[in-house]
């Protein structure tokens, strides 16, 4: 067993630690259109995670694309308790940052190299402080 520990910058903080499972996409996400508002499922036909559900997951995505209303979709998911447990991205764009902050969804920004170390299904612990956050994963 080898421990992988990755540091990131905090966009939205969270009191206490989080433990969850990773869902990862390698494509930029348009929260408006790609995600079903009533379930949290990815409905985009051309997505590499079509049919998966982002609710309650540690959701890794490179960046966002498309309408700025995507921010409001994140807020809407949070209000219905359908938001991801933690958002993790490489590119901190206005759409996701504003969605995370208004929806009170914890969010971390990590480097490219760190992003590549995780894959869907990994069990991860997240420690999120005021400025910095950490993702920890036991690699077998």
């Amino acid at each position: 067993m080898q421990e992988v520990k990755v540091e990131g910058k905090v966009v939205q903080e969270w009191e206490g630690n989080l433990t969850g499972e990773i869902l990862k996409t390698n494509q930029n996400v348009s929260f408006l259109g790609d995600v079903d508002l009533n379930t949290g499922r990815i409905v985009a036909k051309d997505s590499d995670i079509e049919g998966e559900n982002i609710s309650g997951k540690i959701f890794l995505f490179p960046g966002s694309r498309g309408s700025t209303v995507g921010a409001n979709v994140l807020f809407g998911l949070a209000k219905k308790n359908l938001a991801p447990m933690l958002l993790v991205t490489k590119h901190p764009e206005m759409i996701t940052m504003s969605g995370a902050i208004f929806g009170n969804i914890p969010m971390l920004v990590i480097e490219e190299e760190a992003f590549d170390q995780f894959k869907t299904g990994n069990k991860v612990k997240a420690f999120i402080e005021k400025e910095k956050g950490y993702l920890v994963h036991q690699k077998s």
């Binding site: 408006l32 508002l37 700025t68 209303v69 409001n72 979709v73 807020f75 809407g76 209000k79 208004f102």
Partner: peptide, 19 residues
Amino acid sequence: IAGVSFKTAGKPTLDLVEH
């Protein structure tokens, strides 16, 4: 302020702005 047409803004925006 953009995000006004219900066609583009939709229910999430309505919820947020009413909130």
